[in-house]
Amino acid sequence: MSVDPLVADEFVTFPLTVDGVPREVTARWSESLLTVLRDRLGVLGPKTGCGHGRCGACAVRVGVGPDEPHVLCACLVPAATAVGATVETIASLGGPDGELSDVQEAFLAEGAVQCGICTAGFVTAATELLERHECPSRTEIEEALYGNLCRCTGYGRIVAAVESAARTRRERKDPVPLTTRKLTASLRTGPEAAE
């Protein structure tokens, strides 16, 4: 991108890796990561909802410096402070050729998508939750998704979808549920063995 020399001091150029692809960005130093992703790089997974960190429609997972990658609101981050960062949008969650992730499948199966503007943010936040908690309670799910707003108010189905995705993950990892194993063990040897 060519920059008018009169406003050159408003621009900075820096690298970002977005969904695994190294990109070189030239943007105003005060521009948000969301603006850079959508308007300069054409990455449209993160949505512009409120633009000030309330709704989570722009949630992406960012690895900056030595920090563990974590989900944040792209609208609140000055993009130039993320020099060299790795940014994973909703496009990083599915497989190649548009294959959906298990969380996305659960959202579809549970009818957790209405108008859709919040969905990428919810799926991004829910995916991070399930990486940290294999078996989150309903309260933990609600706390983890507290920064994501659904303007269609479809929260019941969204929470159900996250519960369903968590259950499916546990069943895949361990086809015999824990409660069944405990019961079997206690029948065999008495209650002490179940602990």
Binding site: H52, G53, V64, C75, L76, V77, P78, A80
Partner: peptide
């Protein structure tokens, strides 16, 4: 940036330059 970026968006504050501590 969680306070500064909304302020810039709404024009309630301006900035001649940033020094980021991030």
């Amino acid at each position: 940036g969680t306070e500064m970026m909304p302020d810039l968006l709404w024009g309630t504050r301006s900035a001649d330059a940033f020094v980021s501590l991030r």
